[in-house]
Design a protein around this nucleic acid. Structure first.
Lengths: 206, 206
DNA sequence: GCCACATATAAACGAACCGTTCCGTTATGA
DNA sequence: TCATAACGGAACGGTTCGTTTATATGTGGC
């Protein structure tokens, strides 16, 4: 929030030669993050980011050709604040721990706004959709897949069901986030985790 | 697609007095629907809708103050094409039938585009979010709740789990639609339905 | 029959954002 | 030394936004 970070209107931050200026990169990501947190997706504009970062629009478009690229970069920067990889011993407990950590992360950092913006952007742009589906999602889901895989090894779930259960779980979180219902709802999270962890779906009834 | 519906550029459609003109309403909804189907969310604009419908922008803003209102109205108009309420006898079969009908509806009508636009809009506007969460979603989920409720009556699932299972199922469909993965994937739908229908989550391990 | 009123379209408004281009400056790296 | 590339500033033409003004049209109350 200092003038050095957000609006270095006095001092100018010029080129440092034939390479990317890390100060500029940081200033742009910070400005984008703050703008998303303040105004949300509808109030977001490259012009405003450039103004706040004290950067030129050509500079921004050089490094992040589309809004989706910028959103992904902002989310990447924040992900350090979320490193949940619970080893509670059983799937249900792992899911509860992971979910509570994720929702807290989405609520208490700008990451929730960034995620929502990325999903919104993906509904209007093929490139953004590809970024969301083929880059962002697989990366976010890696830790989660391990949680389910470990449960399969322990025999809690069928190994063949891992991907489908993953989708059910991720879908639940998306639905909650996109409808702004990620308050600390212990009971709802508990019911969801119990159902997912207890889903056997005995193949006989095919 | 006739000139009467989409672009009555020759003939003018004036006021019919101190009340809404049904012709204008229909022309606007048709134009909005076609534009969404053609250009998607990013390419959608009120200006273009007004041009295509041969209507004035003030007229559109009078009856649909926000884009979300217009999207909801467009979806409402199309919902007649989707009346799935399967009574196959068991939950898994019902879910498979419903899902296949829903995905077909989303793929083969403009409804999928409209849904995606509404979700996107809701990520940038409080009013749109409220419309999506408190009006659109509850309405869409009614039939679905009956399917789960009937399964509970038959003893296939616990009545106390209906709402949570509903959320898991709806989340799955949202995730698929918003990442544009609603091709006719028989195997994936089957796995999902089997897991949801078989979710008991025996309360003991609470 | 007359008139207040609400509706309809057209045209234009100022503001904002888009993505791009040109320019002058600065510093690297060959 | 010097081509190269990154930087910020300014402006471009085009589009959309939501609103306002003006005018025509038909309803419903009197």
């Amino acid at each position: 929030m200092s003038e050095d970070d957000e609006a270095p209107r006095g001092r100018r931050r010029g080129s440092i030669g034939a390479r990317r200026n890390p100060e500029t990169e940081a200033a742009v990501l910070m400005a984008a993050q703050a703008l998303l947190a303040e105004k949300g997706y509808a109030g977001f504009s490259i012009d405003e980011v450039a103004r706040r970062a004290g950067a030129g629009k050509p500079t921004i478009y050089r490094w992040w050709p589309t809004k989706a690229d910028l959103f992904v970069a902002v989310y990447e920067q924040d992900k350090a604040a979320f490193v949940a990889d619970p080893h509670a011993g059983d799937l249900k407990s792992d899911l509860i721990a992971y979910t509570r950590a994720l929702w807290t992360f989405w609520r208490d950092s700008p990451a929730g706004c960034t995620f929502r913006a990325l999903v919104a952007e993906a509904q209007g742009s093929k490139a953004a959709l590809a970024a969301l589906r083929d880059k962002f999602l697989p990366e976010r889901v890696r830790t989660l897949r391990n949680i389910f895989a470990r449960a399969a090894v322990r025999g809690e779930i069928d190994a063949a069901d891992v991907e489908a259960l993953l989708e059910l779980y991720v879908g639940f979180n998306w639905l909650r986030m996109l409808t702004d219902r990620i308050a600390d709802d212990k009971a709802a999270v508990d019911r969801m985790a119990r159902l997912i962890a207890g889903a056997r779906g005995d193949r006989k009834a095919g």
